[in-house]
Design a protein around this nucleic acid. Structure first.
Lengths: 180, 180
DNA sequence: GTCTATATTTGGATAGAC
DNA sequence: GTCTATCCAAATATAGAC
């Protein structure tokens, strides 16, 4: 990473990579600065606090989820489950690391707690569980949502072709959540 | 937690609770000490470093996984997938927090990297994928493994009756990984 | 086995020069 | 927009008394 080029975008990209590898609270601003070849003070010129960076990194993911849920909510009930599965599969594959940190990191979860985003995650699980929502389908929906971090966690999936992986996740969703 | 009773076991229990809620690197020894009503120095009497505590907390989980894999490896091939699913479902339900931290926390993953435990996790995934091991079944296996942290992540699953949740996870495994 | 006190390092954050 | 230098708080860890 060439010095003199640490724009806000580069800071977010470097941060996401480190958040993914070491966790949000395991990542210091010194680590971010060093990975960009600048000093901490340079970072602080672009963001006021570490928390601002965390929010800026995670925000696009939250927006994506909210948009997805709104779009799926507008569909006929019998299309909702698989539309959401397809949308989530796409996100989990295209933005593997962002998705993993958003879903998975404890600090991200704390940030989410009590916010509108928490409602969005809850709504996703309920949409996946369908109108019946017996405890079995709620459990399978939650398992599917947690399972979506697999593309970021498993080394072989991380290396797998995007389209193929996306198709595999969609099939997994159909098996787990499809009509009995 | 009464003071004067912070044995090594109590330190591990308090640490696990905090690791689960705040992540390993989000948990300080001060937090552990305060939750036990003692000082940091008392903790250091029982463990030499924070890393020692982390290892001591996670070790039982690793042992359980290793034992489970050895047991499943000795079974006839056509029984292996569902035996492993049942074993994992049991662990995921009974030791929700320990399981979640072990599988899920980035610091735990770093600790695992390059160790024998990494091989055990790999072996679990391969056993679940079965002998064919096309990329689709590898993806579904990885998704199931990641999905097993759902009981620790989802509030409703966290509250669900153990036996019922275990049965739901086993059914999810059968749907995802069962013979086509 | 736990305490008080302290050493040392790291992390978040700011001031002011260039 | 980046630097050096610095502040302050918190974290890991140790020493020595009780």
């Amino acid at each position: 990473m060439p010095r003199g080029d640490s724009s806000a975008l580069q800071i977010r990209e470097a941060s996401l990579e480190l958040f993914f590898r070491h966790g949000v609270s395991g990542t210091s601003l010194r680590m971010v600065a060093e990975s960009l070849g600048v000093t901490k003070a340079a970072i602080y010129h672009h963001y006021r606090t570490k928390d601002d960076i965390v929010r800026a990194v995670l925000d696009p993911a939250f927006t994506t989820f909210t948009t997805l849920v709104e779009r799926v909510d507008a569909l006929p009930p019998d299309e909702q489950v698989m539309a959401l599965v397809r949308g989530l599969a796409r996100q989990a594959v295209v933005h593997r690391r962002l998705y993993a940190v958003t879903l998975h990191d404890v600090t991200a979860a704390e940030l989410r707690r009590g916010s509108a985003q928490e409602q969005t995650f809850r709504r996703m699980r309920d949409l996946l569980a369908g109108p019946a929502s017996d405890r079995g389908s709620v459990a399978r929906s939650a398992l599917f949502l947690s399972g979506l971090m697999a593309p970021a966690v498993d080394a072989d999936l991380l290396a797998m072709d995007g389209a193929e992986l996306e198709a595999a996740i969609i099939e997994a969703g159909a098996r787990l959540l499809g009509r009995d």
